[in-house]
Write a protein that binds this DNA or RNA. Structure first.
Lengths: 228, 228
DNA sequence: CCGGATCCGAATCGATACTG
DNA sequence: CAGTATCGATTCGGATCCGG
């Protein structure tokens, strides 16, 4: 029964006992974006088996990382406790580290709203941030990233309803960027913004192409050091 | 065969695919202290099955995180690549986070030289560092932590041979501290240095008791925020 | 001794189905 | 919506064995 533990009295060991199980950090990633219902998590994590999601949420609650909050109307959401939220810098740093090892997407890989939201937070450079209102489409995920006063705010847009609706953050974005997974190479700087447009990796649907350069300056992750 | 992956195109996801398997981060923790032979890892990780150690080392090599280096005499060691070493701040941060969730040690928990070395690095506060030469014994692990110019160096002492031998870093330490797992409460500040001595949680074998206060100021991890 | 490989029972995970 | 239940497929843990 002590098989889930490692038998060491050590902080790192305790940490991986708490959040090292399969799927746990991805659940936390999504909850870092905001409180989520069971069903939201289930579809944001796409391939997670429902019994595993259930088990993880239970474990994370017992560990004081996540808590269950009943909603006023009905239903309930899961949200991070303050202790759970302390994982944010770690999740961002791990995301930055892992970003450097992302190759081309494998067949069937998806991009979810929450993962892209966190990816933008990961890639955000406070010191080089260019203020602006960037709308980004990757696959069928649509986000509005607003940079102001050196701070980033990301809102998720509902894509299926093309016209109408007033859930857009406010007014028009300065630029609308559409891309596929190739956006990674823009963020890593492997390809310059100009080239990316010429090569058809990204499309500037609305606004100025120069805004893509501001985007690339604002959201950037340096490639890894030579690893061998 | 794609069962080890999560099916998401995301940096964090890639990271946990690379270092999220059981034992992987603990192997990396030990390698952050220095290059290690297979046998060193096997006993530093005590309860790791040998086939798992073998499998992880293979995976970590394929990922460009670890490399195998033949020794001049004979034998070989594993060491981190530059990319693997980029995990250091993340491992330290995770260790700090997990430290806050460490309760009392479970029956059979051990403290290893490498885990304690990394724990000291984790708890080290550059800004509050008090220069000195601290010798610390926890269980049968003995370390010499030297703080100078705001930098920390940790050397592992061989404990079984009481007299003789000149592998000690240099001269006498300013203080020799002996403790059990209760050292955690000193580092967290749950108990003050004076009380810890009075309660018999730590013993100052040699040197001044005031040095324990310097130790506690230098190595400190704030307790977690209220989690509920 | 070092550096693993092999074998097998136990525990976990993944996929699907089902329920209050 | 928010999960349980079930069951086959994997992985892990523990022990043993092997070549240098």
């Amino acid at each position: 029964m002590a098989s889930r533990t490692y038998g060491q009295y050590c902080g790192l060991t305790r940490a991986v006992e708490l959040v090292g199980e399969r799927w746990a950090l991805l659940i936390i990633r999504d909850l870092l974006v905001g409180p989520r219902r069971y069903t939201d998590l289930n579809q944001g994590l796409a391939r997670i088996p429902t019994n595993i999601l259930s088990a993880r949420l239970k474990e994370l609650q017992e560990a004081g990382i996540v808590r269950r909050v009943p909603l006023l109307n009905c239903g309930l959401v899961y949200e991070l406790t303050p202790y759970g939220r302390e994982l944010e810098p770690i999740v961002l740093a791990l995301g930055r580290w892992g970003f450097q090892a992302m190759g081309a997407p494998k067949e069937g890989d998806v991009v979810t709203p929450d993962s892209l939201t966190m990816a933008l937070r990961t890639a955000f450079r406070t010191d080089a941030a260019e203020p602006g209102d960037y709308e980004l489409h990757v696959g069928d995920v649509a986000l509005r990233a607003t940079v102001r006063d050196g701070e980033l705010r990301v809102a998720q847009l509902a894509p299926p309803a093309p016209p109408a609706s007033g859930e857009r953050p406010a007014g028009e974005p300065d630029v609308v960027i559409a891309a596929g997974p190739g956006i990674r190479e823009v963020i890593s700087g492997e390809i310059g913004p100009r080239c990316a447009i010429e090569d058809g990796i990204v499309h500037v649907i609305a606004g100025d192409a120069a805004m893509l350069e501001r985007f690339a300056a604002t959201f950037h992750i340096e490639p890894a050091l030579a690893s061998r």
